[in-house]
Amino acid sequence: MSPNLSALGKKMIQYALVLFVAVTINFLLPRLAPGDPLLYFFDEGTLKELTAAQKQTALDSMGLGGSLFEQYIVYLKGILSFDFGVSIKYGLPAMDIMLERLPWTLVLIGPAMLLSALAGIAVGAFSAWNRSKAWDVSLLTGMLTFQAVPGFWIGMLFIAIFAVQLGWFPTYGAVSIVQDGTALGWLKDVALHLVLPIATLSIATVGSNYLLTRSSMLESLGQDYVVMAEAKGITKKRLIYNHGLRNALLPVYTHFMMNLGTLIGGSVVVETVFSYPGIGRLLYESVVARDFPMMQAVFLMITVGVVAANILADLSYPLIDPRAKSARRIKEEG
């Protein structure tokens, strides 16, 4: 077996173990949380009047019957068959509901991540080149402010100004109840509903991209090859983007890939503020309703997303930074 295949096999085994542990924690967390899922269907008075057999029948219908070990086996079998059970709140297969909500979240976080990353990288590189100058101090202060301000506060501020006061955008949801019935009208309506959530999520996350880019760029600009290139008279633009930024992108790329997996669930605050029908809102509703099947399905999707993002980042490192490929080859030969 070649060293590359051997290293890849070891890496896949590590990720499989991580996924197994995460899946197990995913199963245990909802069950360790306080509260009784039966209270979603029955008030406390009615619940007290139910017999033990009636309670057990209700739990069995929700997939919560039997011992913890038996539930765990059923849970693992469901994962292998993509069957997460029936949602307690909606009375429909959890997988169907999740797949229905997922596109709305992807439409939201995709542009938001891209805008946040591009703005953070561009402004961070500019700020690093102008370190300790007025521009750098101003940008650093502004980005630290964005980093400290809660996302829900930004969203509520946007709603108050641009939706309520100015009336430019809708206040909630993904589509309007009343539409003109055309495909173009529907797309325009969806786009208008996306503006404020995307802006909120972008502003809430741009600070981390900026700070990471600035820090990495400062380290890169201090290297000997950059000083030599500057001494040769290379233009400022080429020096920043061709020499400094290209070698500072690896930690930024890693951060971007990690967000790729976590933002699916991390958008819960923004989706809740705007009543946006995505995965984040679904997770919030599931936790409030103690909807075990739905919680497990969403948590598992987030877990798989994070692991998949790690694998993709690890495999694509050499494309971003050839030094990673050289280091891996030296390690394998050694």
Rank of each mutant, 00 (worst) to 15 (best):
L92P: 06
T141P: 08
I88F: 08
F126L: 15
L59Y: 08
M62I: 03
T141C: 14
L114E: 00
L118D: 12
P103N: 09
I88S: 09
D83T: 04
L68A: 10
L80S: 09
W135S: 15
G91W: 04
Y72L: 00
Q71A: 07
E70I: 03
S81C: 06
F84V: 01
L114T: 10
Y90V: 14
L99N: 06
L80M: 14
M62Q: 07
I97A: 07
L118I: 15
S127H: 02
F82V: 10
I88K: 00
I121E: 10
V86G: 05
L139C: 14
A128E: 08
W135R: 13
G85V: 05
G66N: 03
P93M: 04
I73F: 08
V74E: 03
S132C: 10
S87M: 08
D83Q: 08
G66M: 01
T105I: 07
G110N: 02
D96C: 07
Q71D: 02
L114G: 03
M62D: 03
T141I: 11
I73V: 13
G142H: 07
A119I: 15
T105A: 07
L64A: 02
K89R: 10
V123C: 11
V86W: 09
K89F: 00
S127D: 10
W135M: 15
L108G: 01
G78W: 01
I97Q: 09
E100K: 09
W104V: 13
G110W: 08
S61W: 06
